[in-house]
């Protein structure tokens, strides 16, 4: 379990990194936190011709609270998210979900941008991005593209990024006042990838839902956003019937797979169970916030 040979480049600035990416051909890979890529290298499942290590590109890291949104640099470590009071206040859904990401020593290196660009369907950060319809700021030598989450995640480990493009930042909208967020996940063991995880954010006005956002990990080839479930909740008071109908919609709209850990049918049941937990918690928190 040793990586195959590869060329290694460690650009110190973004332009240099983008030049390298543009010039290195389709088999180049960007090395961010490495917590998914290095295992793949060790198993020799990933065989990049060139590894472009962007850990030295200082401008890619950082949390910038801009009021209506929080801009998180692609190389911001998940450990920083976990301890950031700004994130806890402005994007509590991301903050809560981060605690489900593996373990502390993995979050030390793992990055928000890496997780989102890797687009593992069982990973937490993409589900949060999908729920909040975060904006992916993508750069190449050709310029900048801003891609909404809905158009970013394409399939298992596949995004809308072009081969010469790099995710440089993710913009998460600030949670509206009167809203509550919750992340619920079940995994085989503490820190494992989700069997099913549901991210929910509900905004209430006078006790009625004015905005609902529900997305999931582990339940399809890409993070799923459940618009039908959101519509069921809109304008409701989150009474049990509405929540149950939304949970049914989440289960029905899920597109899970079978593997050694769980059957697709069971994952669908977990989808409803996690949706129930996340929605109830988000509703309660919204009530407190309102």
């Amino acid at each position: 379990m040793k990586p195959p040979r590869f060329d290694y480049r460690a650009p110190q600035g973004l332009d240099e990194a983008l030049d390298l990416l543009a010039d290195s051909g389709p088999d180049a890979r960007i090395l961010a936190g490495g917590q998914s890529l290095v295992p793949a290298l060790n198993f020799r499942l990933a065989r990049p011709s060139v590894l472009i290590d962007i850990n030295g590109v200082a401008e890619l890291a950082g949390i910038d609270d801009q009021g209506d949104r929080v801009v998180i640099g692609a190389m911001t470590r998940q450990r920083e998210i976990e301890v950031s009071e700004d994130v806890a206040r402005a994007v509590p859904l991301l903050h809560e979900a981060t605690r489900y990401v593996a373990h502390l020593p993995i979050r030390t290196r793992g990055t928000v941008g890496g997780s989102i660009a890797n687009a593992d369907p069982a990973a937490e950060d993409p589900a949060v991005a999908a729920a909040l319809d975060a904006t992916m700021v993508c750069r190449s030598r050709r310029g900048e593209r801003r891609i909404a989450a809905g158009g970013f995640f394409v399939d298992v480990l596949t995004t809308a990024l072009e081969p010469d493009e790099m995710l440089v930042a993710v913009e998460f909208p600030r949670i509206p006042s009167g809203a509550g967020a919750a992340f619920a996940e079940i995994s085989r063991r503490d820190g494992d990838f989700a069997l099913a995880g549901v991210a929910a954010q509900i905004a209430l006005t006078n006790g009625r839902v004015t905005d609902a956002r529900i997305a999931a990990c582990g339940l399809g080839p890409a993070p799923l956003r459940f618009r039908n479930a959101e519509e069921i909740l809109l304008d409701s008071a989150c009474e049990t019937e509405a929540i149950e109908a939304a949970c049914d919609a989440v289960a029905a709209s899920s597109d899970p797979h079978d593997d050694v850990h769980a059957s697709a049918a069971y994952r669908r049941q977990l989808a409803a169970a996690m949706a129930r937990r996340a929605l109830n918690a988000a509703h309660t928190r919204a009530g407190v916030a309102a």
Partner: peptide, 16 residues
């Protein structure tokens, strides 16, 4: 073999 890594062959941790 479908369980050829520690991501699929699950040893219990302190948390379990």
């Amino acid at each position: 073999l479908l369980t050829g890594s520690f991501a699929d062959y699950l040893l219990p941790t302190a948390a379990e």
